[in-house]
Write a protein that binds this DNA or RNA. Structure first.
Length: 157
DNA sequence: GCCAACGTTGGC
DNA sequence: GCCAACGTTGGC
């Protein structure tokens, strides 16, 4: 299957693209997603090798900060079973997990973040899920063209 | 800090 | 099954 592309949001104060670059093996588990639409993507769609746009949300300015690659496809998020976790879900059962996660590995930190206003002002990105009014999905699909456009914006100097 | 938009919950 | 209330997200 062809490589696909995704965008994942993180608040940089919590976990930034720089944090990912410094992580062991430059890899982290993308746990804690508690939205069914995003869960379905994590569980069913996202494959090893897929490209990830690393988006800094609630930042000043928000924007795409770099890229990552999927290092492990969907598997049950263990934090759902951990009563001490913020992401604990008393309804989730081990033989029937409710929440899934993937692992991602740092690929590139852009020399300069691609800010949200620039994304909005780029005609090729007109239809991006991210830019739709009210769109809040923390894991969302990106087309190959959108990927190409944003990586070009992020890497040109 | 504000608030619009969205998802979830629970009473009925 | 409807929908009001609530909690969360995330830009500004």
């Amino acid at each position: 299957m062809a490589r696909r592309y995704w965008l994942m949001k993180s608040e940089p104060e919590t976990f930034s693209v720089e944090d990912l670059a410094r992580a062991p093996k430059k890899t982290t588990g993308w746990d804690g997603v508690r939205n069914y639409q995003a869960r379905n993507l994590l569980r069913d769609e996202i494959q090893v090798g897929d490209g990830v746009l690393f988006y800094h949300s609630s930042a000043d300015p928000p924007g795409v900060a770099g890229t990552a690659e999927v290092a492990r496809a969907g598997y049950p998020d263990p934090t759902q079973f951990d009563p001490k976790s913020n992401h604990y879900d008393a309804e989730a059962k081990r033989d029937e997990p409710r929440w899934y996660m993937v692992d991602i590995k740092h690929a590139q930190t852009f020399p300069a973040l691609v800010p949200l206003p620039l994304l909005r002002g780029t005609p090729a990105l007109r239809d991006m899920v991210l830019l739709r009014k009210g769109s809040r999905l923390s894991v969302q699909p990106v087309t190959a063209d959108e990927w190409k456009t944003i990586v070009a914006l992020g890497t040109k100097r």
